[in-house]
């Protein structure tokens, strides 16, 4: 069987010990995954701009009073599943969380839960518009790029730093396998990100 590729899992938990523990459990399991550690919710938004995340493991305390933001993130990244760490404080099932586990669950149980969660998220239409999972930001950068804008111009238009533009460009090339600007133009047209009328042939 061909595996569908590496899972990207983000852990949103401010306790280093818990983070470290979950990470160890994941890395020692047979899941092929890459773990991203986050201290606060704001880090998540920034991460998602650059890296599609399959599963978010979160301490629900982080969501308190920020339900609206979480809902927005879920709408924007529908393929990301959320697993909550149950500290015994969750009395009613939350719509913001797909599954929960406690820190006292066996490692096998936790890994199994996460694997099921991944299968579920894969059965959903996963690719947002099919753009090799380019994020919205990356698509914006790509659009600027194929319209002949310089890094600086793209940075100004999107209100981000040049450094960030460069990072987005790297990710775009990594995800699409296309490195040259003219190649990316053809890519963007094939994917209907831009219209052919925008380009003079």
């Amino acid at each position: 069987m061909i595996k569908s590729g590496r899972l990207h899992i983000a852990i949103l938990e401010s306790s280093k010990i818990i983070c470290e523990g979950i990470q160890t459990v994941l890395y020692q399991s047979d899941m092929d995954c890459r773990v991203h550690r986050l201290d606060a919710l704001d880090d998540l938004t920034e991460l998602l701009d650059n890296q599609p995340i399959d599963i978010l493991i979160a301490n629900p305390v982080q969501f308190v009073n920020r339900e609206k933001e979480i809902q927005k993130i879920r709408r924007r990244y529908p393929s990301m599943a959320i697993a909550g760490i149950d500290f015994g404080m969750m009395h009613k099932p939350s719509t913001l969380i797909d599954i929960t586990f406690t820190l006292y669950d066996s490692t096998e149980h936790i890994v199994q839960l996460l694997q099921k969660l991944d299968q579920k998220s894969q059965s959903q239409p996963n690719e947002k518009g099919g753009e090799e999972n380019l994020t919205k930001r990356e698509i914006e950068v790509l659009t600027g790029l194929v319209n002949g804008m310089l890094n600086k111009e793209i940075a100004d238009a999107l209100n981000i730093s040049i450094h960030t533009v460069v990072r987005h460009r790297k990710n775009i090339s990594m995800k699409t396998g296309i490195r040259s600007q003219s190649g990316l133009t053809i890519y963007a047209i094939s994917k209907k990100i831009i219209s052919i009328e925008d380009i003079d042939i």
Binding site: I178, R179, I186, S190, K191
Partner: peptide, 16 residues
């Protein structure tokens, strides 16, 4: 070599 790879990838993955 880079542009050659682009060409191959465009034909293998994207252009219908």
């Amino acid at each position: 070599e880079l542009k050659l790879k682009d060409l191959k990838n465009l034909l293998l993955k994207y252009i219908k």
